[in-house]
């Protein structure tokens, strides 16, 4: 394998005196979907926050072969490292169209035409957003909100897209739709770091997986192997060990 897109080495993150992530190392390769699964409070969101630069951390994060230390959140976005956060963080009192337009803020130097093209692409992928382009983001349904968050992130033309629980609070039908979109993105050349509670779906679509528990990595490997692991099956896939 060539140098991975993202290489996180012995990363520790603390909230005040309490350490929430302890020396975690993960890699996300080009053109792959990498999933991180784990129970509530395992430190998954914290891990993404640190990679994004929202939280201070110790250890090294290399992206595109270069250390990210010192780069601001905005600079990371400009280099194609884009996060869809757990809380979505949409601009509630602005329209769907405005939210999407702002997703391309970091790419503004590419010009109007490039933004237009991204916008058409996003509307193509999410026809429901196109219908609602003048609706305020705060009035969207949960599923539409998640699509808007994804769409806004895609407007930034990410190289590595980090998704924090994209299926959170959504009905099974929409979850399936979201996951098929994620697979479609990989086909379009976007590498993905996926955080999920829905371990079954995450391990199904991803190439590699990590299991995070109370801030520490307990397992890692190709997703198919992880799904077959009896411990994972018992804890995360809801199957008794004997089945």
């Amino acid at each position: 394998m060539t140098t991975p897109l993202l290489e996180v080495e012995s990363l520790s993150v603390s909230y005040g005196k309490v350490e929430a992530v302890h020396g975690v190392s993960i890699r996300a390769g080009e053109g792959r979907i990498v999933s991180v699964i784990g129970p509530n409070g395992a430190g998954k969101t914290t891990l993404l926050g640190a990679i994004m630069g929202l939280l201070p951390s110790r250890g090294t994060i290399r992206y595109l072969g270069e250390p990210l230390a010192g780069a601001s959140v905005e600079e990371r976005v400009g280099r194609g490292l884009v996060l869809v956060p757990e809380k979505r963080e949409l601009f509630a009192s602005m329209t769907v169209g405005d939210n999407l337009a702002l997703g391309a803020f970091a790419r503004r130097r590419d010009g109007e035409a490039a933004t237009r093209r991204s916008l058409d692409e996003v509307y193509g992928r999410f026809p429901r957003l196109a219908e609602r382009r003048d609706q305020l983001a705060g009035t969207l349904s949960g599923g539409e909100r998640q699509m808007l968050a994804l769409g806004r992130a895609l407007m930034g033309r990410p190289k590595l897209l980090m998704l924090d629980e994209p299926s959170l609070g959504l009905a099974p039908l929409i979850v399936r739709e979201i996951f098929s979109i994620i697979v479609g993105l990989r086909a379009a050349g976007v590498s993905i770091l996926l955080i999920e509670q829905n371990a079954r779906a995450a391990l199904q679509v991803s190439d590699d997986g990590y299991v995070l528990e109370t801030g520490e990595l307990v397992l890692s490997g190709p997703s198919a192997e992880l799904a077959a692991d009896p411990k994972v099956a018992a804890t995360y896939l809801g199957q008794g060990a004997g089945h």
Partner: peptide, 12 residues
């Protein structure tokens, strides 16, 4: 409207 959202969109 949303400072975190703005940062994640690349607005410093």
């Amino acid at each position: 409207v949303n400072r975190v959202g703005a940062r994640l969109a690349g607005i410093s």
